[in-house]
Structure formats: structure tokens, C-alpha cells
Design a protein around this nucleic acid. Sequence first.
DNA 1: CGAATTATTATGTATATACATGTTCCTCCA
DNA 2: TGGAGGAACATGTATATACATAATAATTCG
Lengths: 241, 241
Amino acid sequence: MTNGKEATLHHRILSDIEGRIVSGEWPPGYRLPFEVDLAVQYGCSRMTANKVLTHLARAGLIERRKKSGSFVAQPATQAAVLEIHSIEAEVRSLKLPYSYRLEKRFQREASPIDRQHLELSGAASVLDLVCLHHAGERPFCLEERLINLATVPEATGEDFSKSAPGTWLISQIPWSTAEHRIYALSADAQVSKTLDIPRGAACLVIERRTWGSNGPVTFVRFTYPGDRHALVARFTPGGES
Amino acid sequence: MTNGKEATLHHRILSDIEGRIVSGEWPPGYRLPFEVDLAVQYGCSRMTANKVLTHLARAGLIERRKKSGSFVAQPATQAAVLEIHSIEAEVRSLKLPYSYRLEKRFQREASPIDRQHLELSGAASVLDLVCLHHAGERPFCLEERLINLATVPEATGEDFSKSAPGTWLISQIPWSTAEHRIYALSADAQVSKTLDIPRGAACLVIERRTWGSNGPVTFVRFTYPGDRHALVARFTPGGES
DNA sequence: CGAATTATTATGTATATACATGTTCCTCCA
DNA sequence: TGGAGGAACATGTATATACATAATAATTCG
């Protein structure tokens, strides 16, 4: 990862061009040399140059147009990568003992609000869970979750009293599409009591909607005491780390 | 973009394999067929199969090990992509009139706190800006910014009274690395007055540190009234949109 | 029997080649 | 003059080939 030096031709050319772009030597809109010219310049075949340019295009650094050539792209919207770990991992990275408790567990027909959260159109059964994650003695995060039993019927047989539903779900639906909404909220009576924070204290709320290949899987809202937690997102031009 | 159908061999193979992985047919840890076998199976050359697997590896769906083969990866940490637009674009997407006002502008030697924010070790001059972004009549976002004059000396000549420093900086340093910290905070006296919200109201705070190829560029803190703003982040297994 | 050596295997990188495809530009003819 | 048609061009995709590299399996020898 420290990347002592990947001395392949591919990497050399790639990082050279990348360097020229991020340094501003080749500003947005600049037309870079044609594939054949790059090939001559770096003493490689066109295929290799093509691969590098394809790579850069996929990374969003350049745009390619037939006949016209390849151009340095305009960095339109900053796209930062938000890594979302499991809560247990988060707590442990703070070097605090982690514990988990299931507060409530209902199985019921989806209410209109449930259907809205899960983006369901018709009737469906859902599992409604409320869990509390602790870091040491103090509550760390409140988790309110809906599981769509149409796509994850196996959830009926799980009681989630010992381990959090998030980790169990990943074993069931390993690869899923997700959409997150992040906002701030003042703790109401319920939240302030559950999280043991003053009423009105700022909380960071993360809502996540998850889809598998068979449709909506789960909706979850994490509520964190705002002064005890922060999300971190990163962006590097080339991608990679 | 709607992707009517990219009927290239590459795309066919790619989406086929991707489908098997996200559907769970090939679960995490599963060893997929060797390149030569895939080549036979799809009636293509090994080079083409290799390209597809390389693509999948870059997208993080598989891991490759020499001699052993390629394996479906464990989706360790959910990595969602957070698209951060300019504030003007944000406001306009809400169909509200946007306006901008510069509140303060200082040039000074970096204080210890400035240096900490910009991750500077030695002495340096900085530009300290406070701006207010409005949506319609109401304050939408408070921007507190430090600009490192060592890397962006041109900023001295800009007064930022008409347009926000963010957009100007992008024209100076188009490609930059950035790190974001997102958290919730209760409005103190200062913030509540500036944003015209009750004291103690929850705010969403986004701090961004930016580096160019010549070092630290800027540090900025955006403070949003929490009930009026949310961030959205997405994740799709293959990447792409 | 066990350690060192060698062979095998699958991926990694690079090249030369071929043809397809979408643009642009130029030419030629009505 | 203007527009249809085609040549030129740059990228896109695919193949066959070659050799490098890393990891494992097999073999050899002290």
C-alpha cells in the first residue's frame, strides 16, 4: 500500500499523466496527445497507451471523443468516498468495549410509513427492530430497523438478541445497493432518554435504504449523539488510496 | 446513459459475472473459473476475459491471487459515494433563489489553530473568510474558510465579495485531494444569530480539508441548519451509476 | 525424512495486428 | 453554392502471442 514503486510501464505512464493533470500542467479542457503519440513518447505500443487512457477515463480524469482525441475533464461535482463500517468496528476503533442490546422486536404487516421507508408499493410483512449499541457504559448509537420479509424471509427465524441485524444481513445479502441520507436532529424526549443525552442535544442521523437483486431489503436509521461521533469521507483524484 | 444495450462482448461477460456475484449465486469466497475457462465459456480470448476480471477487481467485486485464481471478495466496509455539489447548485436544485454575502475577510499570519486546521507545520499567511449563503430570504449555510496563501498566493488579489471562494478555488486548483468530517452540533449564540435559528438547534457541520499537488490549500467549515438540509450518498456494487 | 530445488500453473503485462465505429473534414457534382 | 458522399482519422474492441511473476505442487537429494 505504501507503494514502494510499481515499476510497470503501465503505472509509470499512468502516474506521469495523472501528475500532469492534478498539478494543473494539463488544465481541464486540455487535449492530451493522441494514443499513437503517447505510445511513441513513452516507447510503448498503442494498446498500452489505450489501456492507460481507458483507465483515466474510468477514473473520471479525462473524457474521450472519437476523432477529436482525449481531453482533461472538468471536475464537476466532488465525489468523496464515505466508508461506513459496522458499529462494532467503529466502537472498537475507539478502543472501547462494545456491547449490543435488542430493545424491541415486532413482526407485522407494513404500515404506510413502513412502505414509504422501504419503497414498497404493495402489502408486505416487515420485521421492526430497535437496538442499542453501547461503547463502554454509555449508549453509542440507536438503531431503528425495518426488514422486508418478502426478500429476506429467513429473518423470521432470527431473534437478533445476541448480534446486530446489520452483520447478519450482510451474510444473507452480501452485495447490495444502498442509499444514505445524513442529517442533524435535536433529540426528542424518546431519543434523549434512550441515548442518555439532554433533550434537544444535536444528533447525527444516518438513514440507509438497501436493495438486493430481489428488491428492497432493509431500512435503518442510526442516531448518534452529535458530540461523540463524526463521519469521514475522502476524495483522491485518481481513485485508489 | 439509459444503457439501451452495450452489446460488446466485454459488457456481456462483465454484467453476466457481476449478476452472478450480486445475486449471491457466486457468494463471497467463491472461486470463479480460471481465465482460460471463462474464455472458452464465453467464446472469447483470454485477453478479453482478463480485461473483464481486471475490471471487476478494480471495482472491488473480486480478489485475484496468482496461481490460486480469482475469488469473490468479502464486502468488508460499505463504501458509499457522497456527491458534494456547490452550494449554489444545491440551493438552485431546491428551486430557490440563491444569494451570497461575504461577512468577514482577514489576512493574517496563521495561528496555531489555523495551522492545525490546514495541517501546516511552519509559519504561513492565511486568508480567513466568513461567508453566508442564502436560499430565498433565509440563511442556508454558514461558510468559514481558511486559504493557505503559500499554495494559492493569487487569493490575495481576490476580494470574494461577489462570488464564493469555493468556485474560485476550483478554477485555481481543479484537481485536489479532500478529506471531509461530518458531524452534528448544537447552535451556539454566534451560529444561531448568523443562521437565524433558535439557540441549541441541531446543525449539520461539514468540514473539508483540501490538498493540491503543492500542499494544503484550504480548510472550510459549512454549517447548515439541521432541519433544512441532508446529505445523500449512494453505493452500487459495480461502481458506475 | 525433511529441506532445497525445480516444475507447473494462473495471473500480470506488453506487443503487433486487425477490423469496427463514430467524427470531422474535404471533395466533387448537381 | 450547397449538400451528398466518401476519405481520413482517432478511438474502441478483440485476438493471438510472448514472456514475466508469484504461488503452489512435485521432485530430488543429503
